[in-house]
């Protein structure tokens, strides 16, 4: 069983469209959408949810108003500026759950135990079935944090399914950037594909993403989407990648069929038999080859 994670550094380069096509092309696989704060894969794969579970990213402090003696200690020790005073008539604070990091320092310093500290529900995760096999996905609540922990849950569940059903591939849709959720989505993967575009921004962000995968020693390949928008930069990116020992798994041409497929809620390879689909099929074949 092999786990392939698609990331990009820069957002909007076509991660989800590529993963949706891989879903149609790969045999015996499970899909995992690890872009938990802006998940989109479900819009194409139309999953039927079979199981759901609440996600708690950690605890949150909450003032028990009746017990508060207005000493102000909690506000003084909070390093995340989460306390505010909603009532001008008194000094009873309130915790803004958006800013609370769940460190529990206020709970421990409160002299009268007037702060509760319970697991907060800040999202859900799902196991679903799609016409292309099982899918694990999630939804992080509005303005919530700790997406890395939710990413890890989604990946672990996908791995469990792959083992139980004896599947060959775990295909993971990652998030943009190089921070917490991305690190959680690539750690220990068999192969990372960085999807980029032929722009100076795409190149800059690809190189940061490649530095990240090198830092964690994860085998990495690149794929340039919309390469014909600027063939010179496309080539420049492939050369820069090669200098770092990173191979490419192919180029995908610019084609409005990619947006049209999204609107029709289907993958590109199912939407059209055109040249762009041939590009994507070649990328998939090269990806299998890169896995060894």
């Amino acid at each position: 069983m092999k786990e392939i994670v698609v990331i990009s550094g820069k957002g909007g380069t076509g991660k989800t469209s590529l993963v949706a096509s891989f879903a149609a092309l790969a045999e015996k696989k499970v899909l995992a959408d690890c872009d938990v704060d802006a998940a989109d894969l479900h819009l194409v794969l139309n999953p039927k949810i079979n199981y759901r579970e609440d996600f708690s990213g950690g605890k949150k402090a909450k003032i028990i108003t009746e017990e508060c003696i207005e000493c102000g200690e909690c506000e003084e020790v909070c390093r995340f500026d989460s306390m505010y005073y909603p009532d001008p008539e008194n000094e009873i604070p309130c915790v803004n759950p958006i800013f609370c990091e769940g460190c529990g320092v206020c709970v421990r310093v409160c002299p009268v135990e007037a702060i509760s500290f319970d697991d907060a529900v800040n999202g859900e995760w799902y196991v679903s079935s799609t016409s292309h096999g099982p899918m694990v996905h999630a939804r992080l609540g509005m303005a919530e944090g700790n997406s890395g922990k939710l990413v890890t849950i989604v990946r672990n569940k996908a791995r469990e399914i792959a083992e139980k059903e004896n599947l060959d591939y775990i295909i993971v849709d990652g998030s943009p950037g190089i921070g917490c959720p991305v690190i959680a989505s690539i750690a220990g993967a068999d192969l990372v594909i960085v999807v980029t575009e032929p722009t100076l921004s795409g190149q800059h962000d690809l190189l940061r993403a490649a530095e990240l995968t090198a830092h964690f020693r994860i085998p990495t390949v690149i794929c340039i989407n919309k390469w014909d928008l600027n063939p010179d930069i496309a080539e420049q990116i492939e050369t820069a990648a090669k200098e770092r020992g990173i191979k490419d798994v192919g180029r995908i041409r610019y084609d409005t069929a990619i947006t049209k497929a999204q609107i029709m809620k289907t993958s590109v390879v199912e939407y059209t038999g055109g040249a762009v689909s041939e590009d994507i099929k070649q990328v998939w074949r090269n990806t299998i080859y890169a896995l060894g």
């Binding site: 957002g11 704060d37 958006i98 800013f99 919530e144 944090g145 959720p181």
Partner: peptide
């Protein structure tokens, strides 16, 4: 600001 809707974005827009 960065993309998304979680903690980095909140830090940027607050």
């Amino acid at each position: 600001s960065p993309p998304g809707t979680s903690c980095p974005v909140i830090e940027a827009v607050k």
